[in-house]
Design a protein around this nucleic acid. Structure first.
Lengths: 172, 172
DNA sequence: GTTAGCATGTAAGGAGTTACATGATTTT
DNA sequence: AAAATCATGTAACTCCTTACATGCTAAC
Protein backbone atom coordinates (compact mmCIF):
# COMPACT_ATOMS: atom_id res chain seq x y z
CA UNK A 1 0.00 0.00 0.00
CA UNK A 2 1.19 3.57 -0.48
CA UNK A 3 1.05 6.45 1.99
CA UNK A 4 -1.93 8.29 0.60
CA UNK A 5 -4.05 5.17 0.48
CA UNK A 6 -3.01 4.25 3.99
CA UNK A 7 -4.13 7.60 5.27
CA UNK A 8 -7.45 7.48 3.43
CA UNK A 9 -8.18 4.03 4.83
CA UNK A 10 -7.29 5.07 8.35
CA UNK A 11 -9.59 8.06 8.02
CA UNK A 12 -12.55 5.93 7.01
CA UNK A 13 -11.87 3.22 9.57
CA UNK A 14 -11.02 5.45 12.52
CA UNK A 15 -13.11 8.45 11.57
CA UNK A 16 -11.75 11.95 11.20
CA UNK A 17 -10.68 11.92 14.84
CA UNK A 18 -7.57 9.85 15.38
CA UNK A 19 -6.15 10.05 11.88
CA UNK A 20 -2.58 10.98 11.06
CA UNK A 21 -1.53 13.94 9.02
CA UNK A 22 0.91 13.54 6.15
CA UNK A 23 3.42 15.44 8.22
CA UNK A 24 3.65 12.52 10.59
CA UNK A 25 2.75 9.71 8.21
CA UNK A 26 5.54 10.14 5.65
CA UNK A 27 8.36 10.60 8.15
CA UNK A 28 7.10 7.47 9.91
CA UNK A 29 7.15 5.50 6.66
CA UNK A 30 10.68 6.71 6.05
CA UNK A 31 11.77 5.57 9.52
CA UNK A 32 10.10 2.21 9.00
CA UNK A 33 11.94 1.82 5.72
CA UNK A 34 15.23 2.76 7.37
CA UNK A 35 14.52 0.22 10.10
CA UNK A 36 13.97 -2.41 7.43
CA UNK A 37 10.35 -3.20 8.34
CA UNK A 38 8.94 -2.12 5.02
CA UNK A 39 10.46 -1.93 1.56
CA UNK A 40 9.59 -0.09 -1.58
CA UNK A 41 8.03 -2.49 -4.02
CA UNK A 42 9.71 -2.77 -7.41
CA UNK A 43 7.51 -0.83 -9.81
CA UNK A 44 5.77 -2.89 -12.47
CA UNK A 45 7.92 -2.07 -15.51
CA UNK A 46 5.03 -2.61 -17.95
CA UNK A 47 2.52 -0.49 -16.11
CA UNK A 48 3.43 3.17 -16.40
CA UNK A 49 5.11 5.64 -18.65
CA UNK A 50 7.76 6.56 -16.13
CA UNK A 51 9.52 9.88 -15.95
CA UNK A 52 13.22 9.42 -16.46
CA UNK A 53 14.59 10.75 -13.17
CA UNK A 54 13.75 12.28 -9.79
CA UNK A 55 10.55 10.30 -9.71
CA UNK A 56 7.85 11.53 -7.48
CA UNK A 57 5.03 9.13 -8.26
CA UNK A 58 3.42 6.49 -6.12
CA UNK A 59 5.68 4.56 -3.81
CA UNK A 60 4.15 1.23 -2.86
CA UNK A 61 5.45 -0.34 0.32
CA UNK A 62 5.25 -3.89 1.50
CA UNK A 63 6.14 -5.54 4.82
CA UNK A 64 9.53 -7.24 4.77
CA UNK A 65 10.23 -10.51 6.58
CA UNK A 66 11.76 -8.42 9.38
CA UNK A 67 8.65 -6.26 9.43
CA UNK A 68 6.40 -9.26 9.80
CA UNK A 69 8.55 -10.49 12.66
CA UNK A 70 8.34 -7.10 14.33
CA UNK A 71 4.56 -7.10 13.91
CA UNK A 72 4.35 -10.58 15.43
CA UNK A 73 6.40 -9.33 18.39
CA UNK A 74 4.09 -6.38 18.86
CA UNK A 75 1.04 -8.62 18.73
CA UNK A 76 2.59 -10.95 21.31
CA UNK A 77 2.99 -8.13 23.83
CA UNK A 78 0.60 -8.61 26.72
CA UNK A 79 2.02 -6.21 29.33
CA UNK A 80 0.73 -2.76 30.33
CA UNK A 81 1.87 -1.31 27.01
CA UNK A 82 -0.87 -3.42 25.39
CA UNK A 83 -3.81 -2.30 27.50
CA UNK A 84 -3.07 1.36 28.06
CA UNK A 85 -5.67 3.74 26.71
CA UNK A 86 -3.61 4.54 23.65
CA UNK A 87 -2.57 1.05 22.71
CA UNK A 88 -5.53 -1.10 23.65
CA UNK A 89 -7.65 -0.18 20.64
CA UNK A 90 -4.79 -0.93 18.27
CA UNK A 91 -4.03 -4.27 19.87
CA UNK A 92 -7.70 -5.18 19.90
CA UNK A 93 -8.05 -4.31 16.23
CA UNK A 94 -5.40 -6.97 15.48
CA UNK A 95 -6.92 -9.60 17.77
CA UNK A 96 -7.85 -11.83 14.83
CA UNK A 97 -4.11 -12.24 14.25
CA UNK A 98 -3.21 -12.56 17.93
CA UNK A 99 -2.73 -15.74 19.97
CA UNK A 100 -5.69 -16.76 22.10
CA UNK A 101 -3.71 -16.68 25.37
CA UNK A 102 -2.34 -13.24 24.59
CA UNK A 103 -5.84 -12.01 23.79
CA UNK A 104 -7.05 -13.22 27.16
CA UNK A 105 -4.19 -11.63 29.05
CA UNK A 106 -4.66 -8.29 27.31
CA UNK A 107 -8.38 -8.30 28.00
CA UNK A 108 -7.81 -9.13 31.66
CA UNK A 109 -5.14 -6.46 32.01
CA UNK A 110 -7.40 -3.92 30.39
CA UNK A 111 -10.26 -4.86 32.67
CA UNK A 112 -8.08 -4.53 35.77
CA UNK A 113 -6.99 -1.10 34.54
CA UNK A 114 -10.54 0.06 33.94
CA UNK A 115 -11.70 -1.34 37.28
CA UNK A 116 -9.04 0.71 38.99
CA UNK A 117 -10.27 3.79 37.21
CA UNK A 118 -13.84 2.94 38.17
CA UNK A 119 -12.90 2.50 41.81
CA UNK A 120 -11.03 5.79 41.79
CA UNK A 121 -14.03 7.58 40.31
CA UNK A 122 -16.40 5.99 42.82
CA UNK A 123 -14.19 6.99 45.71
CA UNK A 124 -13.80 10.54 44.43
CA UNK A 125 -17.54 10.79 43.91
CA UNK A 126 -18.34 9.46 47.38
CA UNK A 127 -15.94 11.98 48.90
CA UNK A 128 -17.13 15.05 47.02
CA UNK A 129 -20.74 14.37 46.05
CA UNK A 130 -22.13 16.88 48.58
CA UNK A 131 -19.98 19.78 47.41
CA UNK A 132 -20.49 19.29 43.65
CA UNK A 133 -22.89 21.37 41.58
CA UNK A 134 -25.34 19.36 39.49
CA UNK A 135 -23.39 19.66 36.23
CA UNK A 136 -20.09 18.51 37.66
CA UNK A 137 -21.97 15.69 39.34
CA UNK A 138 -23.71 14.78 36.09
CA UNK A 139 -20.37 14.71 34.27
CA UNK A 140 -18.74 12.49 36.86
CA UNK A 141 -21.68 10.11 36.92
CA UNK A 142 -21.70 9.89 33.14
CA UNK A 143 -17.99 9.09 33.25
CA UNK A 144 -18.55 6.46 35.90
CA UNK A 145 -21.35 4.94 33.87
CA UNK A 146 -19.08 4.71 30.82
CA UNK A 147 -16.34 2.85 32.69
CA UNK A 148 -18.86 0.51 34.30
CA UNK A 149 -20.19 -0.36 30.86
CA UNK A 150 -16.68 -0.97 29.60
CA UNK A 151 -16.01 -3.36 32.47
CA UNK A 152 -19.16 -5.32 31.59
CA UNK A 153 -18.18 -5.37 27.92
CA UNK A 154 -14.72 -6.68 28.73
CA UNK A 155 -16.17 -9.29 31.06
CA UNK A 156 -18.39 -10.61 28.30
CA UNK A 157 -15.45 -10.78 25.91
CA UNK A 158 -13.32 -12.57 28.51
CA UNK A 159 -16.06 -15.11 29.19
CA UNK A 160 -16.42 -15.82 25.49
CA UNK A 161 -12.66 -16.27 25.12
CA UNK A 162 -12.54 -18.65 28.08
CA UNK A 163 -15.44 -20.71 26.83
CA UNK A 164 -13.75 -21.06 23.46
CA UNK A 165 -10.34 -21.89 24.84
CA UNK A 166 -11.71 -24.73 26.95
CA UNK A 167 -13.81 -26.35 24.27
CA UNK A 168 -14.32 -25.55 20.66
CA UNK A 169 -11.39 -24.08 18.75
CA UNK A 170 -11.41 -20.29 18.38
CA UNK A 171 -13.63 -19.06 15.58
CA UNK A 172 -12.60 -16.69 12.76
CA UNK B 1 -4.51 29.21 44.87
CA UNK B 2 -0.90 28.30 44.14
CA UNK B 3 0.45 26.06 41.41
CA UNK B 4 1.15 22.97 43.42
CA UNK B 5 -2.30 22.99 44.98
CA UNK B 6 -3.90 23.55 41.58
CA UNK B 7 -2.14 20.54 40.18
CA UNK B 8 -3.04 18.34 43.16
CA UNK B 9 -6.69 19.32 42.87
CA UNK B 10 -6.76 18.71 39.13
CA UNK B 11 -5.24 15.28 39.70
CA UNK B 12 -7.93 14.28 42.17
CA UNK B 13 -10.76 15.75 40.12
CA UNK B 14 -9.66 14.53 36.70
CA UNK B 15 -7.83 11.41 37.77
CA UNK B 16 -4.27 10.64 36.80
CA UNK B 17 -5.21 10.75 33.14
CA UNK B 18 -5.65 14.30 31.88
CA UNK B 19 -3.53 16.05 34.47
CA UNK B 20 -0.87 18.63 33.70
CA UNK B 21 2.77 18.31 34.58
CA UNK B 22 4.61 21.14 36.29
CA UNK B 23 6.50 21.69 33.09
CA UNK B 24 3.33 22.96 31.45
CA UNK B 25 1.55 24.29 34.50
CA UNK B 26 4.10 26.85 35.65
CA UNK B 27 4.84 28.34 32.23
CA UNK B 28 1.09 28.67 31.75
CA UNK B 29 0.70 30.48 35.06
CA UNK B 30 3.50 32.81 34.02
CA UNK B 31 1.81 33.56 30.71
CA UNK B 32 -1.47 34.17 32.46
CA UNK B 33 0.27 36.58 34.82
CA UNK B 34 1.92 38.36 31.88
CA UNK B 35 -1.46 38.60 30.18
CA UNK B 36 -2.86 40.19 33.31
CA UNK B 37 -5.47 37.51 34.02
CA UNK B 38 -4.03 36.50 37.34
CA UNK B 39 -1.92 38.37 39.84
CA UNK B 40 0.33 37.35 42.65
CA UNK B 41 -1.40 37.95 45.92
CA UNK B 42 0.36 40.23 48.37
CA UNK B 43 1.82 37.94 51.02
CA UNK B 44 0.32 38.31 54.47
CA UNK B 45 3.05 40.29 56.24
CA UNK B 46 2.19 38.80 59.64
CA UNK B 47 2.12 35.19 58.52
CA UNK B 48 5.62 34.02 57.71
CA UNK B 49 9.22 34.51 58.62
CA UNK B 50 10.22 35.61 55.15
CA UNK B 51 13.64 35.22 53.61
CA UNK B 52 15.09 38.58 52.74
CA UNK B 53 15.54 38.21 48.99
CA UNK B 54 15.17 35.91 45.99
CA UNK B 55 12.13 34.32 47.57
CA UNK B 56 11.11 30.94 46.32
CA UNK B 57 8.21 30.15 48.63
CA UNK B 58 4.53 29.79 47.82
CA UNK B 59 3.14 32.15 45.23
CA UNK B 60 -0.59 32.53 45.62
CA UNK B 61 -2.44 33.73 42.56
CA UNK B 62 -5.85 35.26 42.28
CA UNK B 63 -7.99 36.17 39.26
CA UNK B 64 -7.82 39.85 38.36
CA UNK B 65 -10.80 41.84 37.09
CA UNK B 66 -9.45 41.30 33.56
CA UNK B 67 -9.12 37.58 34.28
CA UNK B 68 -12.71 37.35 35.40
CA UNK B 69 -13.79 39.14 32.25
CA UNK B 70 -11.75 36.73 30.15
CA UNK B 71 -13.30 33.78 31.97
CA UNK B 72 -16.78 35.20 31.38
CA UNK B 73 -15.94 35.52 27.67
CA UNK B 74 -14.76 31.92 27.54
CA UNK B 75 -17.92 30.72 29.27
CA UNK B 76 -20.05 32.71 26.82
CA UNK B 77 -18.53 30.92 23.81
CA UNK B 78 -21.09 28.64 22.23
CA UNK B 79 -19.49 27.89 18.86
CA UNK B 80 -17.69 24.72 17.75
CA UNK B 81 -14.74 25.53 19.99
CA UNK B 82 -17.05 24.87 22.94
CA UNK B 83 -18.31 21.44 21.95
CA UNK B 84 -15.25 19.88 20.40
CA UNK B 85 -14.02 16.76 22.13
CA UNK B 86 -11.28 18.60 23.94
CA UNK B 87 -13.25 21.59 25.10
CA UNK B 88 -16.70 20.21 25.82
CA UNK B 89 -15.78 18.64 29.16
CA UNK B 90 -14.20 21.86 30.36
CA UNK B 91 -17.14 23.99 29.29
CA UNK B 92 -19.56 21.53 30.86
CA UNK B 93 -17.63 21.56 34.13
CA UNK B 94 -18.27 25.31 34.33
CA UNK B 95 -21.96 25.08 33.39
CA UNK B 96 -23.08 26.18 36.85
CA UNK B 97 -21.47 29.56 36.04
CA UNK B 98 -22.70 29.67 32.43
CA UNK B 99 -25.82 31.38 31.05
CA UNK B 100 -28.80 29.12 30.48
CA UNK B 101 -29.06 29.98 26.76
CA UNK B 102 -25.37 29.34 26.25
CA UNK B 103 -25.66 26.00 28.06
CA UNK B 104 -28.47 24.99 25.73
CA UNK B 105 -26.59 25.99 22.60
CA UNK B 106 -23.47 24.13 23.67
CA UNK B 107 -25.44 20.99 24.47
CA UNK B 108 -27.23 21.14 21.13
CA UNK B 109 -23.99 21.73 19.25
CA UNK B 110 -22.35 18.86 21.04
CA UNK B 111 -25.31 16.59 20.27
CA UNK B 112 -25.20 17.50 16.59
CA UNK B 113 -21.49 16.74 16.55
CA UNK B 114 -21.95 13.36 18.22
CA UNK B 115 -24.88 12.51 15.95
CA UNK B 116 -22.66 13.15 12.95
CA UNK B 117 -20.08 10.82 14.38
CA UNK B 118 -22.77 8.23 15.06
CA UNK B 119 -24.07 8.46 11.50
CA UNK B 120 -20.57 8.15 10.14
CA UNK B 121 -19.94 5.05 12.24
CA UNK B 122 -23.26 3.52 11.21
CA UNK B 123 -22.54 4.11 7.55
CA UNK B 124 -19.02 2.71 7.81
CA UNK B 125 -20.34 -0.31 9.64
CA UNK B 126 -23.09 -0.93 7.11
CA UNK B 127 -20.55 -0.73 4.30
CA UNK B 128 -17.91 -3.00 5.80
CA UNK B 129 -19.74 -5.31 8.19
CA UNK B 130 -19.34 -8.35 5.94
CA UNK B 131 -15.61 -8.00 5.53
CA UNK B 132 -14.80 -7.34 9.20
CA UNK B 133 -13.45 -10.00 11.54
CA UNK B 134 -15.38 -10.42 14.78
CA UNK B 135 -13.01 -8.33 16.90
CA UNK B 136 -12.97 -5.35 14.61
CA UNK B 137 -16.74 -5.64 14.41
CA UNK B 138 -17.01 -5.84 18.19
CA UNK B 139 -14.84 -2.75 18.57
CA UNK B 140 -16.88 -0.74 16.08
CA UNK B 141 -20.15 -1.79 17.66
CA UNK B 142 -18.91 -0.91 21.11
CA UNK B 143 -17.88 2.49 19.80
CA UNK B 144 -21.25 2.98 18.17
CA UNK B 145 -22.98 1.99 21.37
CA UNK B 146 -20.97 4.57 23.30
CA UNK B 147 -21.91 7.43 20.98
CA UNK B 148 -25.55 6.36 20.97
CA UNK B 149 -25.56 6.50 24.75
CA UNK B 150 -23.95 9.93 24.67
CA UNK B 151 -26.66 11.20 22.34
CA UNK B 152 -29.33 9.95 24.74
CA UNK B 153 -27.54 11.52 27.68
CA UNK B 154 -27.31 14.87 25.90
CA UNK B 155 -30.97 14.67 24.90
CA UNK B 156 -31.99 14.20 28.52
CA UNK B 157 -29.88 17.16 29.58
CA UNK B 158 -31.34 19.32 26.80
CA UNK B 159 -34.89 18.38 27.76
CA UNK B 160 -34.22 19.26 31.37
CA UNK B 161 -32.72 22.61 30.36
CA UNK B 162 -35.71 23.40 28.14
CA UNK B 163 -38.19 22.49 30.83
CA UNK B 164 -36.46 24.77 33.26
CA UNK B 165 -36.07 27.68 30.89
CA UNK B 166 -39.79 27.73 30.10
CA UNK B 167 -41.01 27.52 33.65
CA UNK B 168 -39.20 27.44 36.93
CA UNK B 169 -35.94 29.35 37.17
CA UNK B 170 -32.77 27.25 36.73
CA UNK B 171 -31.74 25.44 39.89
CA UNK B 172 -28.27 25.49 41.50
C1' DG C 1 19.98 18.09 62.13
C1' DT C 2 18.37 15.36 58.61
C1' DT C 3 14.96 13.21 55.88
C1' DA C 4 10.43 13.66 53.51
C1' DG C 5 7.33 16.17 51.25
C1' DC C 6 5.83 20.88 49.75
C1' DA C 7 6.68 24.26 46.14
C1' DT C 8 8.66 26.54 42.06
C1' DG C 9 10.88 26.62 38.08
C1' DT C 10 13.94 25.55 33.53
C1' DA C 11 16.05 22.87 29.57
C1' DA C 12 15.81 19.43 26.32
C1' DG C 13 13.24 16.78 23.63
C1' DG C 14 9.21 13.90 21.74
C1' DA C 15 5.26 13.51 18.91
C1' DG C 16 2.48 15.46 16.34
C1' DT C 17 0.10 19.41 13.38
C1' DT C 18 -0.27 23.13 9.92
C1' DA C 19 1.16 25.23 5.99
C1' DC C 20 3.67 25.01 2.29
C1' DA C 21 5.96 23.25 -2.07
C1' DT C 22 5.93 20.16 -5.73
C1' DG C 23 4.83 16.75 -9.17
C1' DA C 24 1.66 13.07 -11.46
C1' DT C 25 -2.77 11.61 -13.14
C1' DT C 26 -7.48 11.87 -14.21
C1' DT C 27 -11.60 14.32 -15.39
C1' DT C 28 -14.13 17.87 -17.72
C1' DA D 1 -5.72 22.81 -21.79
C1' DA D 2 -7.51 23.71 -17.36
C1' DA D 3 -9.09 22.10 -13.03
C1' DA D 4 -9.44 18.71 -9.68
C1' DT D 5 -7.57 15.29 -7.14
C1' DC D 6 -4.02 11.97 -6.27
C1' DA D 7 0.50 11.61 -4.14
C1' DT D 8 4.82 12.79 -1.76
C1' DG D 9 7.50 15.33 1.06
C1' DT D 10 9.66 19.30 4.21
C1' DA D 11 9.99 23.24 7.61
C1' DA D 12 8.37 25.61 11.24
C1' DC D 13 5.89 25.47 15.03
C1' DT D 14 2.84 23.96 19.11
C1' DC D 15 2.04 21.68 23.09
C1' DC D 16 3.26 18.94 26.27
C1' DT D 17 6.39 15.65 29.02
C1' DT D 18 10.55 14.12 31.37
C1' DA D 19 14.31 15.06 33.92
C1' DC D 20 16.63 18.04 36.35
C1' DA D 21 17.81 21.89 39.71
C1' DT D 22 16.61 24.48 43.58
C1' DG D 23 14.80 26.06 47.90
C1' DC D 24 11.38 26.05 51.84
C1' DT D 25 8.94 23.70 55.81
C1' DA D 26 7.54 20.25 58.88
C1' DA D 27 8.33 15.91 61.26
C1' DC D 28 11.14 12.49 63.37
Amino acid sequence: MHGYELRTRLRTILGTFRAFSYGSLYPTLRRMREAGWIAEEAPDPAATSRPLAGRRGKVVYRLTAEGKERLADLLAEAGPEAYDDDAFGVHFAFFAKTDAEVRLRILEGRRRRIEERRDGLRAALARTRERLDRYTLELQEHGLDAVEREVRWLTELIDTERREQSGLPPAD
